[in-house]
Write a protein that binds this DNA or RNA. Structure first.
Lengths: 182, 182
DNA sequence: TTAACTATTTATAATGC
DNA sequence: TGCATTATAAATAGTTA
């Protein structure tokens, strides 16, 4: 398919490998799409470059719960869902801002927790000392749960959450910055 | 690519659609494979025929060394892992969970702030009462603001962040749990 | 049907800019 | 470091066995 014939084996030259990747990737994506259209088939294609960049295609057909042989339907639905999300992830390029934000929020939370702990301990100690009314002040009524510390989902490397129109993920975050303690 | 040119639209004739499906599917699979080999890329391809039959290709590579002779079966790992990530994203329904996570983290922070403030106030009050050492304990160096008084986040169920090998996302969280006050 | 067979179109390797 | 061009390989639409 080109000036010369080639054998199918890893291309050693990094540059031309990159070039070929780009060309063939596009070709593959195109053909995947054509297949899905021409033949009314569900096609999901995912390609990771060796540098980790993700490219994908997914046919997204709305099978309105019609007569598709039962067996396939569920799977198809599953595939669809998956591919759809992947698609979204693609749209958001790497290095999600939101992701970053998440990390920092997590850190803030940890810091806060620590501080709270210390305050709490101090309070305890203080109440201990001035063991005045053993009753009232110790009943700090808070009960809160943090199920799991938001640690960074590595997966995000491929997803950059899309702030859907209008929604701004930053509304809250900037303020949080102030929470960082000296 | 054939006797005649065609437009890319669903082939009406069921028979020829089937035939075309078969041909192109094979071509696509072949190309997917070639791409993965030539360019050292991870490629995952899934095709469902309209009758629900599944065909797929997945590159097998990477992770360990690179002397993969032929198609190392085990190295499906890399791709699998990545796809799994996508899968996870899918499981968290539409809309970026991460974004959601962010929002909830923010709320948590606010709640924490609130609680910290109150703890701090109590501490102050306590120290006031047992005005023993007016010096040391009152200098709680934290400065924080309460942006918004939100209520406790339902459950902060974060995206099932996949702990990458070893890394345990729970390390910090358990500590937080201990902060739960009676 | 299912499988070959071309005549063409399409993809792309090598090259050029 | 990329885009555009071109000669050629490869895929395949329509056809025939």
């Amino acid at each position: 398919m080109g000036r010369g014939k080639i054998v199918i084996r890893r291309i050693d030259n990094s540059t031309s490998r990159q070039v070929t990747f780009s060309k063939r990737r596009n070709g593959l994506l195109k053909k995947a799409k054509e297949l899905s259209i021409l033949c009314d088939a569900e096609v999901g294609l995912v390609v990771f470059s060796s540098t980790g960049r993700l490219y994908e295609f997914s046919s997204t057909k709305q099978l309105m719960g019609e007569e598709l042989s039962g067996l396939g339907v569920r799977d198809l639905q599953g595939l669809e869902n998956r591919l759809e999300i992947s698609l979204r992830n693609i749209r958001m390029r790497k290095g999600s801002l939101i992701h970053q934000e998440n990390i920092e929020l997590s850190r803030s939370l940890n810091v806060m927790s620590q501080q709270k702990l210390e305050l709490y301990n101090k309070l305890q100690a203080c109440e201990q000392r001035g063991a005045t009314d053993a009753n009232e002040s110790s009943s700090t009524p808070y009960s809160f749960r943090i199920i799991q510390n938001a640690n960074i989902p590595p997966s995000l490397e491929l997803s950059q959450s899309q702030q859907r129109e209008g929604e701004c993920s930053k509304t809250a975050a900037p303020e949080l910055g102030r929470l960082h303690l000296p």
